[in-house]
Amino acid sequence: MLKKIEKKEGKRLLNLLKKEYDIEQNIFKNYELYEKNNKIYLGPKNIIEKAISCGIPIYNLKSKKPSTTFFQSFGMFIKKNIIDLNKEQTIYYIDGKDILIVQNEKKYVLVKYKEFSIGCGLIKDNILKNQIPKNKQIRLKYI
């Protein structure tokens, strides 16, 4: 069941996003946070009892992973933990492939190509592990 997140817990989550990605909290002021099956959703201020979902998923509490949907919508406000790919790497990444990089610290990052927020990635053992959901992966021809 979709439930509204209490103020205190909501503040903790937004602080966490601020700490990890230096994202301004006031961009969320017109919305509310909700939880269902360990997923945090950003949705309208008020929902109805019959709601089965709302808005967009932004964070997974279990895996502590921000969603690609969240990064694609709010990437322009993120100032920290960003990895920039070149054209060829971006084509591979959107096609669902991992990318070799020279970073070791395990963390989830915003993957960007130029000004475009591509989605979420996981850096681990010098690899950018692909986090693009399978149903969104495509072989790009125009970029």
């Binding site: 919305y31 950003l42 949705g43 309208p44 929902i47 109805i48 009892e49 019959k50 709601a51 089965i52 979902s53 709302c54 808005g55 967009i56 998923p57 949907t69 694609q72 919508s73 149903n135 969104k136």
Partner: peptide, 28 residues
């Protein structure tokens, strides 16, 4: 069909939406 609806709402980034799965005739 809700699955496709949810996918498209998320893809477009439509935050101001609520999803319900009701027979309209019995909608609150």
């Amino acid at each position: 069909r809700i699955k496709a609806l949810k996918y498209n709402i998320e893809r477009i980034g439509a935050i101001n939406t609520i999803l319900t799965n009701q027979d309209l005739r019995f909608f609150p």
